[in-house]
Structures are given as C-alpha cells and as structure tokens.
Design a binder for these strands. Sequence first.
DNA 1: AGTTCATTTACGGTTTTCCGTAAAAAAAAT
DNA 2: ATTTTTTTTACGGAAAACCGTAAATGAACT
Lengths: 223, 223
Amino acid sequence: MFKKVLIAEDLDSISQTIIQTLENLSITDIQHVKYCDDAMLKIKKSLAENEPFDLLISDLSFKQDHRESKLVNGEELIAAVKKIQPTIKTIVFSIEDKSFKINSLFNNLEIDAYVIKGRNSIKELEKAIQSIYNGNSRILLPETNINTITEKSIIEIEAYDISLLKLLSKGLIINEIASEFKKSGILPNGNSSIEKRLNKLKTYFKANNNVHLIALAKDMGLI
Amino acid sequence: MFKKVLIAEDLDSISQTIIQTLENLSITDIQHVKYCDDAMLKIKKSLAENEPFDLLISDLSFKQDHRESKLVNGEELIAAVKKIQPTIKTIVFSIEDKSFKINSLFNNLEIDAYVIKGRNSIKELEKAIQSIYNGNSRILLPETNINTITEKSIIEIEAYDISLLKLLSKGLIINEIASEFKKSGILPNGNSSIEKRLNKLKTYFKANNNVHLIALAKDMGLI
DNA sequence: AGTTCATTTACGGTTTTCCGTAAAAAAAAT
DNA sequence: ATTTTTTTTACGGAAAACCGTAAATGAACT
C-alpha cells in the first residue's frame, strides 16, 4: 500500500474522515493541509528531502479567507505539483459532478481518480486508492448517475467561450465585449463573430436567450 | 448535555466527523440519516414513542439521486419538523455563507444556531452545541468574514422577486412572465410592473442588465 | 497565381430590453 | 365622500439582442 499521502482539503469536517479512512488502510505517513499553498510547500519539501509523497488527495474548491493564496483551487494545485513531481498519483475528491469538468481533469491534468463526494464516498475513496495502487488509472466513482453533457461538448467549449460567457455575465454588451477582446488580442473580436458564437452556445445548450444561457452556464459551473 | 440527537447530512465524509464530535461530548443516542425524508420519519417515530429528539443538526443542501424525495433540503426539513415538534433545538451546518440566507433561517425558521462549514468547523460545532445547551440562541459561527448584504436587502427581497428571477433565468421574456403570473394569480402581473420591479432589482444589485442581474442572483444563491 | 473552403465580419430587419413619462386604478387618509 | 398617496399599468422612443443573409478575409490546396 502507499506509504506517504498528502491530503489537501479545507473543511476539517471532511479531512478528519479522510484521515480516518487512510489509517484504516494502514497508511503510516498521512499529512494534511487546509490551503493549496501549504500543500505545494509540503510537496517541495518532500522532494528536497528525497522522501516524496506517493499520493495526493485533493479537493477542488477551497474557501477564501484573510490569507493570501497563490494557488486558489485544486486544479491549480495539481497542475503545479505535477510540474515538479510528474509521477505522483492524484485523486480528486470533490462535490463537483459535472462531467465536462471531470473529463477536463482527466485529460488535461491526467489525474488518476476522481471521487465525487456523496452518500458512500468513504467506501469509494478506499476503492479508488486500492485500484490506483493496483496499477489502474482514470477511475471515476461513483459510476452511475453522473450529470452528463456529451463528450463532444467538452471538446467544443474552449477558453474563448468561457471568457465570452464571463464577460457577458458581468453585464457587458456585445460591443463592449468586442472592445475587450481587441484590447486583450483575443480573436475573433468582431461584433458579429461574437454574436455568432453566442448563437452556437445558445443552440448547443438549448438556451432561449442570453439570460437563459448565463443561468445555465452558472448552473453547470462553467463560469 | 443533550441526550438524543439527530443528524441530517448526506455526505458520509462529513457525517462521520459530526458523529465523532457528538461522541466526544458524551452524547449517547446519536442517529444519522442521509435523506431529509428519513429525518422526518425518525422525528415522527420519536414523538410517537414519547422519546423525542433534543437536537437536530442538519445540512441545507442534499444531493438528488434516484430516490424520490418530498423534502429536498434542510430548510424544508426544519420547517416540517418544527410543525410537529416546535420545541426541538436546531443547528444548521452548511457551507452556505450568504448572510441573507442565514438571516432568513434565523427569522423564519427560528433556528438556534448556524455553523458555516469551514477550516475550524468541528470546534465551532462543539461550541454551538454547548452554547445552546446553556440556553443561548441565535448563534452564528464563525463570527468573522461573512459575506454580507445589508439587513435591509433581506427584507426587501421577497418571494415575488425570487419567482420573477427564476422565470427570467429560464429564458422567458417579460411578456411570457406576465402570462405566467396571470396563470398563477400572482400580482402585479402587468408587463410594465414586472419591468419596473426588474429595474429596482437591477439598481439594488448594481446590475447593468438582465444578464448581469441573473448572474449575480445565481452567485448569491438567490435562485 | 488561382481556386476552393472555412472563418470572420458586415448589414438589415425584427423583437426585446431599457428607461423615462404619464395615465389609470387601488389604497389610505382626511 | 373626497382628497391624497401609492401602486399598477400603459405608452413610446432609443438601445441592444436576435436572426438570417451576404460580403470580405484568410488559410489550404492545386
């Protein structure tokens, strides 16, 4: 079994349970942090001391508070960790259940497992750890009932669409978004191109109008 | 100390910790459910057997799954429980930190404590339980750094505004919303009244337009 | 260089929002 | 009952979204 595991989870009501679970798996060296930045420090230190972590279990969203943070969420944390320790195994443990987000983590960050927090997470987290240890990867638990948008959609929705939706949700009108894009050098930035892209998004998500579209995007956690 | 406590929390990773905390407080009879409906059943049964619960600790949001549910969230649960057992003490334990929501729970449901899930929740939950047992009420923990909208705003935003925003977010245009209101007998339902109300909301929340308004409402958890 | 194809931009007409003013209706006060 | 005040509704013009079509640009290929 894994020897040295790092947990990045801000809610103590959850981290407590994860620690318990790991102890039950006879993992001896369990470390826990409440901030992403602290996780990064621990990873660095462990590498410097030549005693690297075998496994990182991380939440996705972390509450902001008085402390200044460089890494504000699990995504950023994992990306940063993999840069300095690409071989580390990673499990994301989060309440987020939108498949496009989950898939992007598998594809972009190459995480080993994603466990959706739910009514039987403890068992599932255990299972994920075991399974990774046995050499498996791309584990998604639970297997059923995931809010799905088709694979295709995930590919088609890019950074451009996200920035577009974000600006729209901030109350900017098409014209202002166009100027904003020109300022940032984002292409295309013509009014009608932006309009056309919004139309694509609207038909794709079956939104009646911009208001509806933003509501859906918020619901899906896209923005 | 309290003798009999009911926990309503869907995430096992959290309920585990709550149970642990209660055990440390020497509470002997701890019961736990993952669904609001089950909580209601337990409350009813305990009353029928003349061994009522002293305290209910409930989450606000519960994941939906295959099971059909009458009560879908903590708010509904607490309202239903208080109808048949008005004297029960209640603690809400949730990640929600918007003050208008918290205040509405204190004002409408008369909960005894609200503990926001965070980095020191275990201690805070303990503190809340102790404090209620000592006769205090209206306890809000942690005390700092709560996202605030002024008290006034909470009063001014009513059910009418919520339904209006909800319909708008579903992509209905003003005209359709008016018809919808007429069908449901909601007043006022003239086009221009609805428009005017939207204007109030927009100036209140400093929204540039409807899209912006819906984005803000989603962010604040209003809809 | 020329052709084809796809992408980006432009244009115009219709609908809806946006915003101010005013009339009508309802409620409250005298 | 009448006046005053508030609420609701109506109206109208300007701005923006909405939606289809067409022109311009650019990339890819011959």
